[in-house]
C-alpha cells in the first residue's frame, strides 16, 4: 500500500466525519419551537446509547460470560446512581476477574 492512498483515505474519513458533525451546529442558530422536534431530540440520547449498548456490550470482551457479568455489575451500580467512572471501572474489573477464573 502506498502512502498517497493511505493519506488520501484518512483525509476522506476525516472530512466526511467532520462535515457530519459541523453542519447542524453551524447552520442551526435558532432555538427550535416545534414540540414534536423538541421531544424527538429529547429522546435521541437515550435511544442511541441504548441501541449502541445492547447487544454489543455482551461481545465487548473475549468471553460472553465475563461480558454478561460486567454488564450486570454496571446495571446494578448505575441503578444505585454511582458515578460514570465507578461504573466503568467496576464493570471492567469484574470482566477481568471473570476472564481469569473461567
Amino acid at each position: 500500500m502506498n502512502n498517497t492512498y493511505l493519506i488520501l483515505g484518512i483525509a476522506v474519513m476525516a472530512i466526511v466525519t467532520y462535515l457530519i458533525r459541523v453542519t447542524p451546529m453551524v447552520l442551526i442558530r435558532k432555538k427550535i419551537k416545534n414540540k414534536w422536534i423538541k421531544s424527538f431530540l429529547y429522546y435521541v440520547p437515550y435511544t442511541v446509547l441504548s441501541a449502541m449498548t445492547f447487544p454489543a456490550v455482551l461481545y465487548s470482551t473475549s468471553s460472553f460470560v465475563s461480558a454478561a457479568a460486567g454488564s450486570l455489575v454496571a446495571i446494578v451500580l448505575a441503578y444505585t446512581k454511582r458515578s460514570l467512572l465507578t461504573v466503568a471501572v467496576c464493570a471492567a474489573f469484574t470482566a477481568f476477574i471473570m476472564q481469569i477464573i473461567m
Partner: peptide
C-alpha cells in the same frame, strides 16, 4: 486478557448515563 476486558468500560459508561 487485560486489553480485552477494557472493551466493556465504555459500554458500562453508557449504561451509567441512561439508567439513572
Amino acid at each position: 486478557v487485560l486489553s480485552s476486558s477494557m472493551g466493556i468500560a465504555l459500554y458500562a459508561m453508557f449504561i451509567a448515563i441512561v439508567i439513572p
